[in-house]
Design a protein around this nucleic acid. Structure first.
Lengths: 120, 120
DNA sequence: CGCTTGACCTGAAGTGACTTCACGTCGGTA
DNA sequence: TACCGACGTGAAGTCACTTCAGGTCAAGCG
């Protein structure tokens, strides 16, 4: 699969994918005879996961750790499972942030509506 | 109110608060005779809102715009209301991201559990 | 009383995660 | 033949802070 296709499917940009490869967030991608990257299904799945983790606020350092575990092979699966579980808990905190912000926005919007009513 | 107190209450760091003042995300803060910042209730409320908006992913440029409107006074309330409403819609998208990530994590965790079972 | 400690101040430089730039290669297509 | 768009590279730029270097001042203490 070509890099542009992977970008479309994962949500990462082409340059970010190259950056991820260079910085070790994913394994070196296989190259075709023309020197261009050819992504496997595994590569795609991995990048899709990375996108989702980044999008939901996994710290970069943690992503690096997690990637290092992935690159070490299946022996690290228990540890990886723990990391993902930890992120899952963080998602709950994120959820709470969203809820708090929603409540604050609801309050502010009501206040604004009130003020606009008085001015009208 | 002192800057350290505002930091504690809003969740922003002391340096971030100073940075926000310098970059126009909040109005110039009043100073005491000793030259130190003295925050009003309004300042605190405003910074609390900024923290919540930042935490939930409002783009920085948009925060700048929003702050500029705030600094222009109450005539901009309808516009500010629209901006907050837009952010509220973004929160729904954020919510969807969290849900998608949760689903992906649930899948991965189940897969890992399965693999660990096979190895055991 | 001098001395340290801690909270505050400032402008400037550093950081991290990308993004953009400048430039080059290659396989089509008009 | 000339140009296009997708791909490649290394280096420099950006953004939102954070850290650094250096200073003021009030309070506590041996």
């Amino acid at each position: 699969m070509k890099i542009s296709e992977v970008a479309d499917r994962t949500g990462l940009s082409v340059t970010t994918i190259r950056y991820y490869e260079k910085s070790g967030l994913c394994a070196a991608i296989a190259r075709g005879p023309d020197g261009k990257r050819r992504f496997s299904k595994n590569d795609l799945d991995w990048l899709t996961l990375l996108f989702s983790l980044r999008e939901t606020g996994m710290p970069a350092a943690e992503m690096q750790d997690f990637a290092a575990l992935y690159l070490k092979g299946s022996a690290t699966i228990p540890e990886r499972k723990a990391r993902l579980a930890a992120h899952d808990r963080r998602l709950d905190e994120r959820q709470a942030q969203l809820d708090r912000c929603k409540a604050l926005l609801a309050y502010k919007l009501a206040r604004y509506a009130e003020i606009m009513g008085e001015l009208a």
